[in-house]
Amino acid sequence: MKHKQLIKIHIATTVIAALTIANFFTFSLIAEIIGDADFIKQVKTVILYCLPVLIIAMPLLALSGKRLAGKSINPLVLQKQKRMKFVAINGLLLISLAIYLYYHANFKTIDTTFFTVQGIELLLGAVNLSLIGLNIRAGLRLSYKKFK
């Protein structure tokens, strides 16, 4: 695969992943603030149905990033790779939590357990958004150095 194509894939998957996570986070937070059970169920259902987008985007993001990084020892590249390990672990937890929250909202009651798990999901989602944001900033710095 050509380098320019790889960069385009990396940028596209980064945007898709970041926007998907940001939307999941935002709508979950809005649902919590509003507190309407039907809206919470709708949000959790939409998140569940949209999970495949993230499940496809994140590995493509990681793979394209690894290919672009190659054997680089650039500190920015090494930091990005280290952060992606945490993003991946958090991502697996977030997928599990999203499935659990969907099930709990739709087939059980929205209770203290639900809100506790929702709080954990929001915390992990904020961490992932922050880490991805730091990686985007590092990627922009790397591309600026490359084209300077």
Rank of each mutant, 00 (worst) to 15 (best):
residue 45 T to I: 03
residue 11 I to D: 09
residue 69 A to Q: 01
residue 79 Q to K: 11
residue 56 I to R: 03
residue 28 S to K: 07
residue 73 I to Q: 15
residue 54 L to D: 00
residue 52 P to E: 06
residue 141 R to E: 15
residue 108 K to A: 14
residue 126 A to R: 04
residue 41 K to I: 09
residue 132 I to S: 00
residue 89 I to G: 09
residue 42 Q to L: 12
residue 106 N to C: 03
residue 71 K to H: 14
residue 134 L to K: 08
residue 92 L to N: 07
residue 73 I to A: 13
residue 27 F to L: 12
residue 8 K to Q: 15
residue 5 Q to K: 13
residue 123 L to D: 01
residue 102 Y to Q: 06
residue 82 K to M: 04
residue 62 A to I: 07
residue 112 T to M: 07
residue 117 V to H: 00
residue 83 R to C: 05
residue 104 H to S: 05
residue 101 L to P: 00
residue 70 G to I: 00
residue 53 V to Y: 09
residue 48 L to A: 12
residue 122 L to S: 04
residue 56 I to S: 03
residue 47 I to D: 10
residue 49 Y to E: 14
residue 129 L to Q: 03
residue 38 D to V: 10
residue 74 N to V: 06
residue 110 I to V: 04
residue 20 T to Y: 12
residue 114 F to P: 05
residue 14 T to N: 14
residue 93 L to W: 13
residue 31 A to P: 00
residue 95 I to T: 14
residue 83 R to I: 00
residue 3 H to G: 05
residue 69 A to W: 00
residue 55 I to Q: 10
residue 63 L to D: 04
residue 49 Y to P: 13
residue 91 G to T: 03
residue 18 A to H: 14
residue 57 A to H: 04
residue 39 F to I: 08
residue 133 G to V: 02
residue 82 K to W: 05
residue 25 F to Y: 12
residue 41 K to S: 11
residue 112 T to Y: 05
residue 42 Q to Y: 13
residue 115 F to G: 06
residue 69 A to R: 01
residue 37 A to Y: 08
residue 105 A to P: 02
residue 54 L to E: 07
residue 116 T to A: 13
residue 128 N to D: 10
residue 71 K to G: 14
residue 23 N to Q: 11
residue 75 P to F: 08
residue 48 L to T: 06
residue 130 S to D: 14
residue 29 L to F: 12
residue 100 Y to V: 02
residue 24 F to P: 01
residue 65 G to K: 00
residue 42 Q to N: 14
residue 77 V to P: 07
residue 71 K to I: 13
residue 110 I to L: 07
residue 135 N to V: 06
residue 3 H to Q: 07
residue 16 I to N: 02
residue 33 I to A: 15
residue 133 G to N: 03
residue 64 S to G: 03
residue 96 S to C: 10
residue 33 I to F: 12
residue 140 L to M: 15
residue 68 L to I: 01
residue 29 L to G: 08
residue 56 I to Q: 02
residue 139 G to F: 08
residue 132 I to A: 03
residue 142 L to H: 02
residue 83 R to T: 01
residue 19 L to N: 11
residue 77 V to Y: 04
residue 19 L to A: 13
residue 46 V to W: 02
residue 130 S to P: 11
residue 90 N to Y: 08
residue 67 R to H: 03
residue 93 L to E: 10
residue 57 A to V: 03
residue 96 S to H: 10
residue 81 Q to S: 07
residue 20 T to K: 10
